[in-house]
Design a protein around this nucleic acid. Structure first.
Lengths: 173, 173
DNA sequence: GGTTTATAGTCAAGTTTTTGACTAATGATC
DNA sequence: GATCATTAGTCAAAAACTTGACTATAAACC
């Protein structure tokens, strides 16, 4: 169905998208078909890319997507409190908790009680953890570059701005 | 931390994104930090929105995201073969299989053997299924509209084009 | 200083999703 | 028309993730 590398959504997907727009207008004329299409496209893009990351880059390092996310933010933002990892990654408290437990067992992360507050846990990378995420990131980045290279630099910039605006616009009013 | 409706990524996330760009340049100067940022943003947007859909719209109809996707495509593209559902939704064969089993148990979908090929299963919505997805879609669409409304119509158009280009560009060469 | 409230994290149970091995029907080849 | 390869689907085990209830510490208030 598809090559080991190169990937494209099946023809059927594009045809479906096309058809959907029209069918929505018939079956739910009051709805905003365009908004639906945008969302389908957004989810599809994100899903596809993450799945590719997992199989093409992260698999070799035995990291799941959440494990990668946690390591990645510890790598880039230095030692962090666990609650900060929750905020930064957008993962749920419980998921971070269990992911950290796993990473600790794997000796990639250490978790100690914070001095200033008995509730919070301070997380850091071990040396092996540092090593691992460093190499995994490079593999991952190669994939990221591969994905993005069909867009011109200008287009990439615009895409980033629009995605930012999409999520940031939702002020809590 | 956040209101029941309105939502915004925590301050920490934006700060992190900012910091990440610089730190990547220090720690992996050969990497493309911009590609990483784009991907983080894409995943974050998609995740957040899907999570909102699940909790704000689909919960009331007792539908998981995959159940919704299957019903949705049957609704819009008429009766489909199971393998077509796989292509159209981008879900794995196994996941479609088990989701269909569930939807069948819930009496929302019927699955029969196709006449022309003993391997394939023909899926259709039951009357209740049709009813359910119709109502669920309206709830979902209201959310979709809410999300998208911070973008101008022109911006929405551009975003769609860029997302298309991002995934479609990956021809299997 | 005792009570209430909020925050950080954990845990167990359930659900969802992936993985890989399997069955069965079809198509291709000789 | 036997053999081999493909395709569609299923299944069971494992992994990933969510949910909601729970513990413990800290902060706020009186």
């Amino acid at each position: 169905m598809n090559a080991t590398r190169g990937w494209t959504p099946p023809q059927a997907f594009w045809a479906y998208l096309e058809a959907a727009r029209q069918r929505i207008n018939e079956r739910a004329p009051d709805a905003d078909a365009f908004a639906s299409e945008l969302n389908m496209m957004l989810n599809r893009a994100s899903d596809t890319i993450v799945r590719d990351f997992e199989s093409a880059a992260l698999r070799d390092y035995d990291l799941s997507w959440s494990q990668y996310r946690v390591l990645h933010c510890l790598w880039l933002a230095g030692p962090l409190e666990q609650r900060e990892v929750v905020e930064v990654t957008g993962m749920s408290r419980a998921l971070v908790s269990s992911t950290v437990k796993l990473l600790t067992r794997k000796q990639l992360v250490t978790s100690t009680c914070a001095a200033h507050d008995g509730r919070v846990r301070q997380l850091s990378l071990t040396e092996v953890g540092e090593e691992t995420i460093g190499r995994a990131y490079r593999a991952q980045n190669a994939r990221e570059v591969w994905w993005v290279d069909t867009l011109t630099p200008a287009e990439r910039g615009i895409l980033l701005i629009l995605l930012r605006k999409l999520t940031r616009g939702k002020a809590d009013s």
